[in-house]
Design a protein around this nucleic acid. Structure first.
Lengths: 212, 212, 212, 212
DNA sequence: TATGAATGAGTTTTCATTCAT
DNA sequence: CATGAATGAAAACTCATTCAT
């Protein structure tokens, strides 16, 4: 995805417009207006509107990927890296908060929703792996299946980002994200009845069912 | 909100259309087409399109409220009632899955997003109360603040419903919702073995097999 | 093809516009302008522009068919009826002169050129039959194959109509059409060496090759 | 008309595009695309689009003229030369079949239709002369006036070329053109047995089999 | 209640063309 | 010779809405 300067400007404007007023607000007229050029000028840079939306979506992913600093991290640490990278990414590009997890916005275009689904699945895939490893490693409680763990973590992350976006960035997303992560850790850590002592005992990955 | 039969039909069609193809798909032409009447005929039943959308949104709430079986429940039980009512509600009206928690769909209209925000806040308010009471009663761990508890519970609930909608209702939402609730309970229940006199009960719970 | 009054007006305007300035001149704006209504108003009467063009073409055929008064005529007489009906038809609706035999005008639309081809083939089919019968009956010389006869007759007919259209109707098409028919008869009648005497002898259809 | 190599390429591309999809298909974008250059580059070679179309039309004539092998020929022979040159010309440059005799394609431009009319008149002029001479020389029957003779000959020639173009060159145009010419001769030759001293020669001609 | 006919504003896109480089 | 970037005009079409019937 090598974008020219103009193309990047267009994508940025499109993102901002969508964040401000939904896809209804993402019109060629508005985008070109935001750049101070005429509508036909846009067509020098993108084949059509669909192309703009598509690049916009693909860009999410690249931004997201780029935001993960430690790509080697796995297990609980990998999940933490992933989750926190979400917060810093969105905090640094607020319009993303309104658009990033709003698949329904692009529902009308077959190709786009396919793109988004694909992106989601890919993310889910690598997260599943991390959850599995974290559970095996005893970093995460063994009594909850991986698909549920995914929901327990990503659900709150998405909701926090949405709340931030809808509140017009009323709070510090990164800080609140850290708080959320701490809370998540409390709930997901192996439920040590002896309160953290002799952690090693729990390493074996107990009672796990392979249904997930 | 006393709707005539025709008005209900219109709202239903509008909901379905929005679920199918986003608000871009919610046009007067499509709605009237779905009912087999002409466009001007719609204006006999609603002042304008915005009115339709607004009633649609208000309807969410009424449906949601109506879905709560035990209005007296408070504390953990109240939360459970609320959460599970979400699942049964959506399961009984699948288009809601694509629309109900997709505030961004209606973002472009000032009034609508205000309506939605209000609705969200009201829900959050009564849930906060329940969380507070549940924490006081020792039903929920005390080491997580209420706003976080809200996210930890509602985030996964929303995500599960969204997944169900996007998967084209591929799984049994109510069953999976129960599983989610069980997982949530595990993570939220007071886990201090010293203070939790009922700890033994939970231990058994941990080894549960496919009870969900 | 049951057209409303408005639809008929639209088709007439479209025909006139096309005759005046080619299909480049057949725009929704021009058509609606010709009727004194706005562009969107057209879409109440036709699904889209292609539909207008299609109906226009289908209309040619119906007009043409309607113009043939004696549908029972066959042989030379049938051909004469057909040819002369072309002249009276076009004379009564001058824009047809510029459009009727200009298949290339509608070349850009797959469906339309298919429609036109179909129409042409149908006409050619019934004319072939007439030529065959005329030749069998000795009304037409036997030394020219039917496909050639078709060209020898229809070619000049089309050219005359085109000349009339391009000359801005400078001459009396029907009169000139009659002259053309007479000339055609002279060239196509059985080449009687004894100058018309004992016509009956020629009835046998001589030297005919069945290669056509 | 001295065209540079690039100009010739442009004209050829324009001709092909017009043949393929009508003038609607003849756009600066398509032409430049066909040559693999950008749109503004075209304006190095032609002042504007109208210029391209005009040169295209003038080119028809030059091609047509160049196709006439025996410029001295007059009378029936001259006509034959002219007619057959049409067939060889078009056969050697198939797109011409769709464009050459389709004046209506260029009807929307004043200047172009004037050019075309002029060209047509010039051709008609020289052909009239030949017809007159042929008639005087007794090569052509005397009972049909020259303007009619013109239509009787040129009409079928045009129609055959059009049929060839519309059939996607399904048959051998030159061969079929010869057949047409033979048929035309049969119909146009003086057929009065008393006045035609060479009548016997023609009689043999009448029974010809597949000599074409 | 409903419809047929219409409309003004706006949609995406294409057109031929220009201009600085 | 050619391009990249742009433009004014116009294309086809959709939008929500109105109004007379």
């Amino acid at each position: 995805m090598n974008l020219t300067k103009r193309q990047k400007e267009i994508i940025d404007a499109a993102l901002q417009l969508t964040a401000d007023g939904g896809i209804q607000n993402l019109t060629i007229k508005h985008v070109s207006g935001a750049l101070g050029i005429t509508e036909p000028a846009l067509y020098r840079h993108f084949k059509n509107k669909a192309e703009i939306v598509k690049v916009m979506i693909v860009n999410f992913e690249e931004l997201a990927d780029a935001a993960i600093t430690d790509r080697e991290a796995d297990g609980l640490c990998g999940i933490e890296t992933f989750v926190k990278s979400r917060f810093t990414l969105v905090a640094g590009n607020p319009p993303l908060a309104k658009v990033m997890f709003s698949e329904e916005l692009f529902m009308d275009d077959e190709e786009c929703s396919a793109l988004l689904l694909d992106m989601m699945h890919r993310h889910r895939g690598s997260l599943r792996r991390m959850f599995l490893n974290a559970r095996k490693a005893g970093e995460i409680r063994g009594d909850i299946e991986v698909d549920m763990l995914f929901r327990l973590v990503l659900g709150p992350v998405r909701l926090l980002i949405k709340q931030w976006g809808m509140s017009k960035q009323a709070f510090d997303l990164v800080k609140e994200g850290n708080r959320l992560w701490n809370a998540l850790c409390k709930t997901l850590k192996e439920n040590n009845p002896v309160s953290g002592f002799e952690q090693s005992t729990w390493k074996g990955n107990r009672h796990e069912k392979k249904s997930d």
